[in-house]
């Protein structure tokens, strides 16, 4: 049966409380489809029954799992659109000038999950600077080795392929393999994935022109956020950029960044050229 209003409201309140994300009325379909795997794993007959069961006896693991399922939207390509536009149309051209001597760019996707962000960046760079003979290297890291393995494989289901990927890029960069789609080798070669906890050292990663640190700081407390931001700043080359998630900011957390607006998109530049 479909989610009752009461059940939906309970979920909305939970998600808002734990993550500050607001699910408007009308998003019942989103809740239903996102909670399907959890409900199935729990042996419920449908999502409605699953949610009602947890409403009656809330437990921390279940409510956390629900919040995560509804707030992690990382399975989209070019998530939120505008940051990738800003990257391709403003940041990369600016870097092309700044790095004209080396003709090489390094990007870090610092919460790369199943790889869509990193491969999206690769697509932008491939059709941009790489075609002009530049070298571009993208490093994708995530705390979960499971998603890192999936990202390395570069194989996605049809449902995943429908999520925000422009059709012309799909046909250019992917090939069908059975019921799934596989990233082509020439794109895959641009990206390296590895497991990394953001609370650990970044020393082995090298220096980057751009860091994408989107929608992951939310999982850390203030002190840890500060620590992460200060260490991220140290791996950004002079004149480099950091992208945070749409609702995120360094304000009140770390004042060693300058903020610039590219259209509606905020980018952060290390103050003092990125040195300690």
């Amino acid at each position: 049966m479909a989610l009752t209003t009461a059940a939906f409201d309970w979920v909305r309140t939970l998600v808002r409380k734990e993550s500050a994300i607001v699910l408007e009325p009308g998003k019942e379909y989103l809740v239903e489809s996102r909670l399907v795997p959890l409900a199935r794993a729990a042996g419920a007959t449908d999502v409605s029954a699953y949610v009602d069961g947890i409403r009656l006896r809330p437990d921390r693991r279940a409510t956390t799992a629900i919040v995560e399922a509804l707030t992690t939207n990382e399975t989209s390509w070019f998530r939120d659109g505008a940051p990738f536009q800003a990257f391709s149309t403003s940041v990369v051209p600016a870097l092309k000038q700044a790095r004209a001597a080396t003709r090489s760019l390094r990007i870090w996707s610092a919460a790369s999950s199943t790889g869509q962000e990193a491969y999206s960046l690769a697509m932008g760079l491939k059709d941009g600077v790489v075609s002009e003979g530049w070298r571009a290297e993208i490093i994708g890291t995530d705390i979960s080795s499971e998603v890192v393995e999936k990202a390395k494989a570069g194989r996605y289901s049809q449902l995943e392929m429908n999520r925000g990927l422009p059709a012309p890029l799909l046909v250019r960069h992917f090939t069908r393999v059975g019921t799934q789609w596989q990233v082509n080798d020439d794109l895959k070669r641009m990206v390296r994935f590895q497991q990394l906890n953001l609370t650990s050292s970044y020393a082995a990663l090298g220096q980057f022109d751009v860091v994408f640190l989107r929608n992951v700081l939310i999982y850390f407390d203030l002190e840890t956020k500060r620590d992460i931001l200060s260490r991220v700043r140290k791996v950004i080359k002079p004149g480099g950029y950091m992208f945070l998630g749409g609702a995120e900011t360094t304000l009140g957390v770390d004042d060693n960044w300058d903020r610039e607006l590219i259209g509606r998109v905020s980018v952060h530049r290390p103050k003092n050229g990125g040195q300690a």
């Binding site: 489809s33 049809q158 449902l159």
Partner: peptide, 15 residues
């Protein structure tokens, strides 16, 4: 491509 979710439709429209 069918089957598609409403989210996917929204994202295509956003593109």
């Amino acid at each position: 491509i069918k089957p598609f979710t409403v989210e996917a439709l929204e994202e295509k429209l956003s593109l």
